[in-house]
Computed example of a mutant assay.
Amino acid sequence: MSKEATIQSARQVELLEAAYQYALAHGLADLSLRPLASAIGSSPRVLMFLFGNKDGLVKALLARARTDELTVLDQLAQADQPIGLAPAVEQIWAWLATEEHRPLLRLWAEAYARSLVEPDGAWAGFARATVNDWLDVLAACQPQPERDSEDGATRRTLALAVLRGALLDLLATDDERRAGAAVHHQLALLRVVVTDIGAVPTGRHGSCT
């Protein structure tokens, strides 16, 4: 890589990070290059040069947000043994409910909704990709017999639906106590393991084995 390309790449990373912090604070719905450039010490011309156009910048910002999301989710999938679906949901909800993560989660919710109504724009595929990301991580937290079964797929889909619904409720109302109570109520359904002799409950912190 040439020195010029290296400088350009470093500047692009620097400006992307600054733009990401701006998006966390202001959202993406009314993003305009001129006020953004002014806020991060750049110019619309430089942003256009580095990212192609506004859609290119939005795509880069969504990819940056997805990186933060995946960093959290991947931590669950790196255990030596699957931790089980219910413990995974508990850990994910604890992270989602932490107030300092609200800016990222509001940005996620905005991008998720926009990708549903603007499927061909810069937001294209974001909702589907994030659903697949979450389902993949939840699957990795399930023991293999459960993971590979039809019931296991249904259980992790239920888990994701509960988490997503509670998150949207939390972002809308800021009522963590009520949303959290609903999540923990639904966890009772996820602590049931289907065995050859029937359904038996697991312990609160045990893995689904």
Rank of each mutant, 00 (worst) to 15 (best):
L33H: 06
A94P: 04
R11W: 12
R102W: 04
G198L: 04
D151P: 07
Q81N: 07
L85F: 08
P82Q: 02
V193P: 00
G27K: 07
Y112T: 06
S9G: 13
A29S: 14
L135G: 09
T195M: 06
V192E: 07
L116S: 12
L50T: 10
E100Q: 08
G165H: 05
Y112D: 09
Y112W: 15
D55L: 09
V117A: 14
L170P: 01
R155W: 05
Q75A: 14
R34S: 11
D80R: 13
L138Y: 06
A63F: 10
Y112H: 13
S43Y: 10
G206C: 06
L70E: 10
G165Y: 05
L85Q: 03
A60T: 09
T202F: 02
A86Q: 00
R128L: 07
V192H: 05
T71Q: 12
W134R: 13
R114E: 15
T98D: 11
E146K: 11
D136P: 03
E110V: 11
V200M: 05
D120C: 11
R204N: 01
Q75P: 06
L171K: 10
W134E: 13
R102Q: 10
D136N: 14
R45L: 15
E118G: 13
G203H: 05
L107Q: 08
A23T: 07
V117F: 13
P119A: 12
